[in-house]
Write a protein that binds this DNA or RNA. Structure first.
Lengths: 196, 196
DNA sequence: TGCAAACTTTGCAGTATGTGCAATGTTTAA
DNA sequence: TTAAACATTGCACATACTGCAAAGTTTGCA
């Protein structure tokens, strides 16, 4: 019921979240302005009001500070999807839209991030990695629902995740609309892509 | 007619290729044995018989030495594909199989590489990046052939490249067969994936 | 409230990656 | 044979990142 990441009573965790967010935003801003190579961890730390050593208590490497906080698939949504009976892609939409919406909440930050990652392979890689993790989860969930072979689930998951990636890229490039519309559109294309 | 990477008359280039390959193989072997973090560029250099400084003349960063040399789409094949009239996926097979075959030539090396990259996110990212470059080229080529919108070409290219990635992953995991069979199989699945 | 255990921040010293430059050596093409 | 082009190397330097131990905070419990 309660999102554990928001409802935090204790000071320690609230502080930790706040610091994480401060570093994250500081990093994005600086790197957007000056480029990845001209921004040092020292600079980020100074601007975020922490020591350089502390930076690495929060993020394992410089680039990690750029990634948006991960969104999670909710357990209920997963369960509903696994037992769903509507056409696969329809049920999938219900699973994935709520997952994707949080990324749409801070479009400015996300656009900056996408723009930065176009110019820097290391960052592009991170973005892609995030989708890869999603892939694996999705493959598991698909396997639960469809009882297909592992091979087939892997392929479907990879394709779906690709469609999402494309949808987000389009959403970031375009300058209007909700992220969910783009995902719907992508899934539609997925359905008809290779029916020639 | 001649593959410019193989038919090299001059000493300079032959040496360069040989050194590149030596470093590449040395790096894979060492890292496969000891893990990415316990192998330094100094170690690789010493084993490859070059100075540490020279290592960075050949590869911009340590991990780059692990990637297999890039295969290129041949110009003729591209042209043939763009003007092709068979169903898209059939023509595509002819374009892509020759591109993929070189990777299949050194399966041991490639398997090591995949294995290493499973355990190490940085490397996984590099692998994925390689596919991303391929994506972009493919999208261009598709656009030339189909006269579809840029959007649609991007999506198709992303999906096709995903299918290839899955095919290669399967090929590496399995222990028999030619890489091209796996690609054919993947494309088949692509055709029927979302026809429910 | 007060105190011990748990956790956080920081400084410091150290290792590794990666770059620019200039000296020295090798290959090329004429 | 020679001058221009290119390759290798050593050295000095900046930055990324880690382990450790000292000092400061927060917590839960008596």
């Amino acid at each position: 019921m309660f999102n554990s990441k928001v409802m935090m009573t204790n000071l320690r965790e609230r502080r930790r979240l706040r610091t994480t967010d401060t570093i994250h935003c500081t990093a994005i801003d600086l790197i957007y302005k000056y480029g990845l190579d001209d921004v040092t961890t020292e600079m980020i730390s100074k601007n975020a009001g922490i020591s350089p050593r502390t930076f690495f208590n929060y993020f394992p490497y410089k680039e990690a500070a750029l990634l948006p906080p991960e969104s999670e698939l909710s357990l209920e949504a997963v369960e509903k999807f696994v037992n769903g009976t509507a056409p696969l892609l329809d049920d999938l939409v219900d699973l994935i839209i709520p997952f994707a919406e949080p990324y749409g909440k801070d479009p400015i930050m996300l656009r900056k991030l996408f723009e930065i990652s176009e110019t820097h392979p290391k960052l592009l890689a991170l973005k892609v990695n995030a989708f890869h993790d999603f892939d694996k989860k999705l493959a598991m969930i698909l396997a639960l629902r469809t009882k297909d072979s592992e091979q087939r689930s892997d392929m479907m998951a990879a394709l779906i995740s690709t469609a999402m990636r494309v949808a987000m890229a389009r959403w970031v490039e375009g300058d209007s609309g909700r992220i969910s519309e783009y995902i719907l559109q992508s899934f539609q294309e997925l359905r008809t892509a290779f029916n020639d």
